[in-house]
Design a protein around this nucleic acid. Sequence first.
DNA 1: ATGTGC
Length: 481
Amino acid sequence: MELKNQLIKKSDYLWELPPHVKKGMKVPAQVYASRKILEEIGGDKSLEQLTNVAMLPGITKASIVMPDVHEGYGFPIGGIAATSWPNGGISPGGIGYDINCGVRLLTSKLTKNDLKGRGEELAKALFSRIPSGVGKGGNIPLSEKELDKVLTHGVQWALKNGYALEEDIDKIESWGRLDNADPGCVSEYAKNRGIDQLGTIGSGNHFVEVSYVDKVFDHEVARIFGLKEGQLTVLIHTGSRGLGHQVASDYMKVMIASMGKYGISVQDRELACVPFNSPEGQDYFRAMAAAANYAWCNRQVITWEIRNAWKDFFKGKDTRLDVLYDVAHNIAKVEDHIVDGKKKKLIVHRKGSTRSFGPGHPEVTDCYKDTGQPVIIPGSMGTASYVMAGTEHAMEESFGSTCHGAGRRMSCRAAQKAVNIHELEKELAERNIFVRAGSRSGVSEEAPIAYKDIDEVIEVVHQAGIAKKVARLRPLSVIKG
DNA sequence: ATGTGC
């Protein structure tokens, strides 16, 4: 029987495959979805991948996917796998190729009216300042020694070198720095790919988008987040570029070659893992942390580029841009969670899943201690994005995690075939959305029809209580690779 | 995602 037909309803928004549906599953496989979202799930390998993850060494409580789930390398994208510390598995496939891919939202002092009729001009101005595209280098020349400092110190490096404001640091997940990072675990090849890419967007679904607050759902939380209807905001979506990609590739090979000696066999080579506390596991974790630090620095340098462009573009106005928050959605972290009533240290893999820590959590910065952390969910190109807040319920149910975006429903190839680029551009322009991109084929791959309905995805996680809606953003000017 | 893969 097809896996999808064996899903058991736990609630209106949570479904489960019990461990007996497939030999080798150690824990249940859970899917956060509405009936509508469920209709679009399972046309790819994502459910099979979800059950494979439930077989991982040390997997705890459940293998979980969010409503934005789709097929990925080994592990589904939109998933969480928590393994027991210190000897549960760590797997590069559970984090993904783009280590610390994530989003940052900047809030402005300006409104939609300040931009009136100049959306296209702003897209051009930002496009000329922020390098984008596959393999594209940037404007920040680094020596090998400086790159090692970026990898070790993360956003602290940016602060020291004039790319960050002191107050930015507090508004970044993990304060923009994982302290177990070790550049010595990152290959020379990976460093070469990253040495000239700091401050660049890349391609694929990465973008910089000027948007405005279209609707506030929770006025009290929005006030603390500094969000008001009509306000202009800037959303940055990018990761660790070629450097993180190479770290992932390097260690996937290491894991495949060495898992046998730890007696680990997996359903699919793409799930290759080793014990977290093995030498290979520790080397990967240190290299992953270094790549994560690079990604936070990358979003920080892009913030600096945007602040400069903003000052020039809106001359004579209040051009201040504050960081609301910066979240990682492809990362593994060692965290404490309550499992079966007991506190447990876990290795939490989030692959296309956003941390959603609730009020009062020690890892949430003081200014958000009453609201829970800001959770920023980008929609597909031309559709809404959401600001949400983390919840206590997420801590209890989903290892403090929620969704990360709309989630693909069409492959890039299928989207290329289905989308007429001229019509798409016309449609967006009619809605006053201006896209400036280096590659037209890249734009068709990111067309809204290639993605699920973001409003439905958000409704699922809101109703399930693993993040709550604060505000909705609508795009105006989009910069892509 | 990616100095893209069919």
